[in-house]
Write a protein that binds this DNA or RNA. Sequence first.
DNA 1: CGAAATCTTTGACAATTGTCAAAAAAATCA
DNA 2: TGATTTTTTTGACAATTGTCAAAGATTTCG
Lengths: 183, 183
Amino acid sequence: MNFNQLDDIVPLDLIGTIFGAMKHKKLPKTHLLHEAGTICKDIYFLQSGMARTYFYKEGKDITVHLASEGEIITAVDSIISLKKSRYSVELLEDSELFYISYQDLQTILSNHPQYEKYVRLVLERMYTEGADRIEEFLFFTAKERYDNLLKTRPKLIQRVNLGHIASYLGMTQETLSRIRRTA
Amino acid sequence: MNFNQLDDIVPLDLIGTIFGAMKHKKLPKTHLLHEAGTICKDIYFLQSGMARTYFYKEGKDITVHLASEGEIITAVDSIISLKKSRYSVELLEDSELFYISYQDLQTILSNHPQYEKYVRLVLERMYTEGADRIEEFLFFTAKERYDNLLKTRPKLIQRVNLGHIASYLGMTQETLSRIRRTA
DNA sequence: CGAAATCTTTGACAATTGTCAAAAAAATCA
DNA sequence: TGATTTTTTTGACAATTGTCAAAGATTTCG
């Protein structure tokens, strides 16, 4: 398995326990893992490939989150609250993934409370990453945000449409195209 | 006690256990709870008053987080990683607060692993709030972000300097002043 | 109270980013 | 391959937001 968001945090026996409860699938590019307007029950662990969370604002398609192999993706606005999600989750490449319902994960955690700690550590990391992304918007210009992404996740830029990257960075596709020309 | 980020999630006995380990202080406006460049070890629970997390970018003071009574504040970039923080945490009003070191909190959690679940729930909520804030920057104009803050945290706008609110919303003070005139 | 300090507003102008439309380039697939 | 679809770039222009400087307003505190 290849889960860089977890490997250094979560002990092997927990990975084993959770892994035993996970289902596995290979799915093609453009497949919708989750559709906006429905309640999202599953958490996806990308073994290979790439996915994005997105939604529409005033007719425009906006990418909220991007994940590649080793990373986790789900509709965060639904999985915890069990409200209908604003987001859809779409595969950007043919992908191989493991998944588990949040319900099942919670059952495992109830039976093995010693594992809660590791879920906490993963959440802490996710929270910190989110805080960094907020900072980006507070201090950085469009060009700085792009340069930063280039530095931190270079592969992503080669594999994802310009339009998706632009909306993920909070700018239009045209702006990103011009930024790239100058850089 | 008054902890609206916790009351509806965390059971009373845990609040009691943690509360027993917390220290209590009253401190005046402008007091620095934490200073940038040092490692932040404590988590603060505001009983009354108001605080902000901020830092400097190119000489400009930028507010990253705002908390009022019932909310939690700390230097998130340091408390978990134990790295030196980029942020300072400052009181905006005379405040009464409880605090505990993250270290002590972890010890409590080790001794009472049944409580990990609630820390996870709090973190999930914090993460979700962070995700919402990112969305704001992705889809909303300066005016929309201000209107939204006005709707979700109206008191805050009456109690916090325009400049702090402006940087918190990712715009200049002048822009916010003009937005407010029109609204 | 009244002077000093801090905070907010305003104006003129500049820079950044967005919009709309169309052309160019690249990817897809029958 | 070659036609079709999708993606990216470009241009002209508009809207939004930022910068700098200064004037008003408000708060603080001796």
